[in-house]
Design a protein around this nucleic acid. Structure first.
Lengths: 147, 147
DNA sequence: CAAGATTGAGAGTTCAATCTTC
DNA sequence: GAAGATTGAACTCTCAATCTTG
């Protein structure tokens, strides 16, 4: 969605470095990532979970996963539900703390993540080469202004 | 959600001007907009629809609204459902083409949009002043590289 | 048959409430 | 009671199918 809330351009010239044009661009970029990952049958959230599991090199509790991906726990419950249905992840019980459920990546999940990572790397390189090295510093400053 | 898919940092230094850090920053910005608009009881999509209606200065068909906000028609159907339930918009029939349904902003909707626009302007100014003028050109270039 | 809108199903997200285990 | 996970309700969004009108 465009989300340009029709903010008034008080500037005579619509120089358009406004919040909404940034968000619009980010949305386009997000779509491109989503589209690329769909080639291997993954969504961005699913890819993110699989990547977290590969990186951890061991099963990770749902609460941990939620924290790593900056989302609420109930979201992870449902995301893992879908990943489990896809056969990319399985829930494993934790004998030490029976409240805790950990997600473990399957062989298929590992393959998908690897394929997704290749796609993302390709996109990343492509994007990086489209940015002038001199502009990177400016973008860094903008990013930190945003934080 | 963070969405940093754990993309491999082939660079020795994680300079982090990657796709995912950009998306992460955009997400933070989006949250700030969403949070600001929540002060007046609006979500970003609802604010966008109201703004489109204010700008048009007349009722707009749902298909038109969907096109203006770059989303599919069925999304607009549901968004207008919720806006209508909130009393911010009403559906009006079109005698000329009875297939067509137009959305008309209510007085309450107009008030909310106006309050939202004030908040967004404030945020926009705040954001603009955090960006060095010299950096704006770089950001423009990045934005156009994204398109 | 085209065009405009809606409906149904499902993904992704949040919040509040609940259940089990510590 | 607090921590870990789940469930239910709601919002935003997409796609495919359907209904009505042109």
């Amino acid at each position: 969605m465009n989300n340009n809330g029709g903010a008034k351009r008080t500037d005579s010239e619509a120089s358009d470095t406004t919040i909404f044009s940034l968000l619009h661009a980010a949305h386009a970029l997000e779509d491109r990532v989503e589209n690329t990952l769909s080639h291997v049958g993954l969504s961005t959230p699913k890819y993110s979970v699989l990547s977290a599991l590969v990186q951890a090199q061991q099963p990770v509790s749902l609460g941990d996963l939620a924290a790593r991906l900056s989302c609420v726990k109930s979201n992870m419950t449902q995301l893992v539900d879908r990943l489990e249905k896809d056969g990319l992840v399985r829930r494993v019980a934790n004998p030490d703390d029976r409240r805790c459920v950990r997600a473990e990546i399957t062989e298929l999940g590992r393959e998908k993540q690897s394929a997704g990572a290749a796609e993302v790397d390709r996109l990343n390189d492509q994007f990086a080469s489209a940015i002038e090295p001199k502009d990177r510093a400016a973008i860094e400053r903008m990013l930190s202004a945003l934080k």
